[in-house]
């Protein structure tokens, strides 16, 4: 018999899960904790197999609680319960040590499937989550590590700098204020990780930007 701990401050949600679980064969609801502190106290005494963890608790933020639970409980399978379907929250939850996540308006079958999959060591994602968004999210994260993409204005300014124009003349040419040019130049140096205009132009040339 495997046991479930539900952490959710909404009384009805606890009841709903209890209803779903009551005639499942090899799982039982061990307890419902209404706050993060209550859950941490409970986990000092007991070790449930699953934790269904609400992300909005009155005392500790669910994402933070996930890290704290994971620190002292390596084996427990944590499934986040959210009422939002936001990619940023989901990826953060998974990197904080959760094994999966379910949307709160899940169906009974989905809950069973989630528990089975995380038991087998897989990551479970609610079917309502747009997988594509998640994949895309990952791909863009990787893209962030690569060479920075320059804006159109930045490219123009880089070329003009390369041609030997000074900040004020560039401002005149592009009908912008020198202050704006200066900001663009500072942004460029930060993006390309250099400290002087000389280095900036070198990196630009090496990367065939000019």
């Amino acid at each position: 018999m495997r046991s479930i701990l539900v952490v959710d401050d909404h009384p009805l949600v606890g009841d709903g899960i209890a209803m779903m679980v009551k005639d499942m064969e090899d799982v039982s609801l061990a307890a419902v904790c209404k706050s993060g502190k209550e859950a941490l106290a409970y986990l000092e005494r007991q070790s449930p197999d699953f934790i269904l963890l609400d992300l909005n608790l009155p005392d500790i933020d669910g994402l933070e609680l996930c890290v704290r639970i994971r620190k002292d409980n390596k084996l427990v399978k944590i499934i986040g319960l959210t009422s939002t379907n936001e990619a940023g929250i989901i990826t953060q939850l998974l990197s904080n040590g959760a094994n999966g996540y379910l949307l709160k308006n899940m169906e009974r079958e989905e809950l069973i499937q989630a528990m089975e999959e995380v038991q087998q060591g897989k990551i479970f994602l609610s079917k309502a989550a747009n997988q594509k968004i998640l994949e895309q999210y990952q791909s863009v994260r990787e893209a962030l590590q690569k060479f920075p993409m320059l804006t159109r204005r930045e490219k123009e300014i880089l070329v003009l700098l390369y041609e030997g124009h000074s900040g004020p003349t560039i401002a005149d040419k592009l009908c912008l204020s020198p202050f704006t040019i200066e900001t663009h130049r500072k942004n460029l140096m930060q993006k390309l990780e250099v400290n002087t205009t000389q280095q900036l132009l070198k990196v630009a040339r090496d990367n065939k930007l000019v």
Partner: peptide
Amino acid sequence: HDGLGGLFSTIKMHFSTLQ
């Protein structure tokens, strides 16, 4: 989220159990 959302989720859980 917490109020109405929680309520709807619970209704759905009940429906699912009933089914």
